[in-house]
């Protein structure tokens, strides 16, 4: 490792210089896709351009992204549980903080979800905040009961991609295009999708942190 280091530095320097040259040779102004997105924003049902791109113009990206989350979680579950995380007794500070913060975090998540229609925010931010609330609960020593992990958690986690796919199939049947919302109902449909996606993303992130697989029916009955 050490003997190659003299070769490594010039190579990395060449990479930095090459990438910097590539970045600096880009034009100072580039409209990109902003104009196209701004022209169609009226028909998207939301007024925040990032939410419009995520849930409407490039909805299939987001659909596949929820599937990626699910596949990552299935990967973690298929590796079996990690028993390295021992049960910890939280101190009074962590315990009280978790009790105070989790309701606030849920409220913040709901606010972010709602505000996402016309300002920065949306399903991913809200989902990340929900996931953080879940992680905080797990750190404070809370563990979901086996009955809860058996199917309610799985249902919530699968709901994100499932509702997304159902919506895509339904709109494909009605409008002839995958995830093409009728402009009059687009706002409502996007809010429904985002709400389900938020809860699903939050549950997935917390489950990724917990790591262990929910018990099978056979195992816990």
């Amino acid at each position: 490792m050490i003997r190659n280091r003299w070769l490594l530095f010039p190579l990395l320097l060449a990479l930095v210089l090459g990438l910097s040259y590539a970045v600096l040779s880009l034009p100072d102004q580039a409209a990109g896709l902003q104009k196209i997105a701004a022209d169609k924003i009226e028909a998207s049902g939301v007024s925040n351009p990032v939410t419009a791109v995520l849930l409407n113009f490039r909805g299939y990206d987001t659909l596949l992204e929820t599937v990626v989350l699910l596949v990552a979680l299935l990967g973690v579950w298929s590796l079996g549980g990690t028993d390295l995380r021992r049960e910890i007794a939280p101190g009074p500070v962590l315990d009280t903080l978790a009790r105070l913060l989790v309701p606030v975090l849920i409220l913040v998540a709901a606010y972010l979800l709602w505000i996402g229609a016309h300002a920065p925010g949306g399903a991913f931010q809200a989902g990340a905040v929900l996931g953080a609330a879940g992680v905080l609960l797990l750190l404070a020593g809370w563990r979901p009961r086996a009955a809860l992990m058996a199917w309610p958690v799985r249902l919530v986690i699968v709901a994100g991609p499932a509702v997304f796919m159902a919506m895509a199939a339904l709109l494909y049947g009605l409008e002839g295009q995958l995830l093409e919302y009728p402009p009059a109902k687009a706002g409502t449909l996007i809010l429904v999708l985002e709400t389900v996606a938020t809860v699903s993303i939050g549950a997935t992130l917390a489950a990724l942190f917990l790591g262990c697989r929910p018990p099978n029916k056979k195992e816990h009955s």
Binding site: L26, P27, D28, Q29, A30, A31, G32, L33, Q34, A37, A38, P49, V50, A52, V53, L54, F57, R58, D61, T62, E65, V68, L69, A72, L73, V76, G122, F124, Q125, G127, A128, I201, T204, L205, L208, F209, G211
Partner: peptide, 27 residues
Amino acid sequence: RTGEAQPDSVPHAMVITGIVVAVSATA
């Protein structure tokens, strides 16, 4: 680099997707 007050929203949407994917891949 759009030259307007509003940045291009498509890369922003890609980044927000990418962050969540990066977190799950890290896990």
